[in-house]
Design a protein around this nucleic acid. Structure first.
Lengths: 354, 354
DNA sequence: CTTTCGCAAGAAAACGTTTACAGTGCACTC
DNA sequence: GAGTGCACTGTAAACGTTTTCTTGCGAAAG
């Protein structure tokens, strides 16, 4: 009973074998529930396990079984609700499937990604990688060759890995169209960081749809970087500007919310003076006021299904072919995008039931 | 160059040794940057490494070095900003120190915790455990004996592990005092889940401070469980109730925000009709409107310093003694708790600069 | 009474590393 | 010309498992 912590090294299979007066093979068999062991032997082993407080060393086990039950997750960053939602989705499935997640976050790209990738060899059965900077070559070169990989947000063509992406281009067009349908003419785009795949798709979607729906209206693109601060700065600029646009379509929700805060502080009313829309539908978006119109991405679902596919690959490496799933987000209309042109009622939506 | 993915198994140190015509020992020496190897040999090895795309198998390495460079993190759940902030803090330090995080989340407590703990043996160098249900015995019994452990939020006395906790009791007293100082008399408490250590401390703090600051005023405790939905339900109840309290002190921010939403829907004005306060200061709290008065906990910092202490223990196992750090949260006054009794100005705070 | 079978359990190889130890060759020193 | 020391490299044990063989042995079959 008095097994005070930190007193001695962990017991190994050998210790158990010695104490139970059997071979290590038998201990192993008992631990793995193999039927081919006599009742009496099993009991002796179990008793020894109990008394020594033996716990198998999974690291050693996975060396020989070639399975770790761990999936590596490589993310560019961990700030904000987008990533926490993603992790939530990943973790949900991991837990259901009795697997664990090895988290690795990276900023510096390039060399740092390579190092992180290397540090994962032999520790994971598969990899979920989100590499928003489109450095396919780098990734391609550093990927351990035999490891199943699922890419999030940035397909690498011909790489042989599966990818789960958000159709940012179509999403951006849909949102731009929505804003236009609300009667807004001069729609500005608060862009994401240059080089980011999603950000670029969203910018392109905005451009194309503006040309189609609002031909002649000049494009208005403000630089940003997916942070609330950038949204805030842009919002201040716009609030003070002499020719304020009718609507601001931010490349993600966090930017939009920063913008919202700046507008509130400056006394600019949303949506009366200017409409605002975001992208991602992070949980926060339904809680700010005015509630944010945005593109619903089902972030947690994205993570979950990516991991699900990865597990399928793990169970049947040869039976599964790489897939490229592209999730189409949907417009979620809330208060911030203004009343419909032919109606006056504010949308009254139930709260987001998490 | 045409190293298409998935073509063959990974190269091992033996393959490199064979190709470079040296022993595996020399390869190992080169990989670990030991100086005692001739220039020419080193080059041969390096060339082989390059051509075989060799990456050392960290799993195998850690089997013999007894170091994994991974820290396990056991959390009760992953919902909400509290945990994402915590993970952010943990990950920040992990990244700085070139370590990785192995995430494991648990709900069912008891047997599930034990299983999770076992699944970690040999995969991690240390453990950060958050077990809000006060089941110290269970934890105590299942903890691998030699593993450094840091407990988050729920000290186990005499367990020999370090713990980092929030002083929820003092925090709750401070918040209750604050609400009282704002002139509120009938202060209700929206409690957290029973059995949760922090929730119970907060309830106790509320009770004690009410008795001191508002003797004679009956306590009013509503059951809850740290979810937004529970806050919402409680808010609806209160809004419809005939004797609404002057103020609601929720056991955490998420509850408070749920409550806020219910009040807004019911047309109950905050803080004019009823004040609301939360606990934790999740990032969201400064963004809702009215901005939420709450106890600032510095969640990410908590995670970061817990991990920092753990690393210190890892580097010098004998030199560090278990510590029990108790972080005292501070009142953050925002709009939701009402104007000071002797002033009318709404507090105008800068936005939370993440 | 042999042969055959099947069950239980042990021996040993394997997984991919690190590292203590033992060579090997070579330049010095006496 | 043998001993000494040094710089380098190879051998083999170890880490904690799983798993394939092998072996021992009692029972069923002939």
């Amino acid at each position: 009973m008095a097994t005070a912590r930190g007193e001695r090294a962990e017991a190994s299979i050998k210790d158990v074998a010695r104490q139970a007066r059997v071979s290590i093979a038998s201990v192993s068999r008992v631990m793995n529930g193999q039927p081919t062991v006599r009742e009496e032997t099993r009991n002796r082993v179990l008793a020894a396990v109990q008394s020594l407080n033996y716990v198998p060393h999974v690291g050693a086990r996975s060396l020989i079984t070639q399975k770790t039950n761990v999936v590596g997750v490589l993310l560019p960053d961990l700030h904000g609700e987008f990533f926490s939602e993603l992790i939530r989705g990943l973790d949900g499935l991991a837990r259901d499937r009795k697997r664990q997640l090895l988290l690795s976050s990276v900023h510096g790209e390039a060399e740092e990604v390579a190092a992180a990738l290397r540090a994962l060899r032999g520790k994971v059965d598969g990899l979920v990688v989100m590499s928003p900077h489109v450095d396919s070559d780098l990734l391609q070169r550093n990927l351990p060759s035999a490891l199943p990989i699922v890419l999030l947000n940035s397909p690498i063509r011909g790489s042989g890995c599966s990818s789960f992406t958000i159709d940012s281009y179509r999403g951006a067009r849909a949102m731009t169209r929505h804003l236009a349908s609300r009667g807004h003419r001069r729609i500005a785009h608060l862009a994401g960081p240059p080089g980011n795949w999603d950000a670029e798709q969203r910018l392109r979607g905005y451009r194309d749809e503006m040309r189609r729906a609002r031909p002649g209206v000049p494009l208005h693109v403000l630089p940003g970087d997916f942070t609330q601060r950038a949204g805030y700065e842009a919002g201040r600029l716009l609030a003070a500007s002499s020719d304020r646009p009718d609507a601001v379509f931010a490349a993600n929700d966090v930017l939009a919310i920063g913008c919202l805060v700046a507008f509130r502080e400056a006394g600019v009313r949303v949506p009366e003076d200017v409409a605002v829309a975001g992208f991602d539908d992070i949980p926060l978006s339904s809680l700010v006021s005015p509630a944010l119109t945005t593109m619903r991405v089902h972030i947690a679902e994205l993570g979950r299904s990516a991991l699900e596919h990865m597990m399928a690959c793990l169970e049947d490496p040869k039976g599964t072919r790489p897939i490229a799933r592209r999730l189409v987000p949907e417009v979620v209309v809330r208060d911030s995008s203004g009343a419909p042109t032919n109606s006056t009622g504010r949308s009254k939506r139930p709260i987001n039931p998490r």
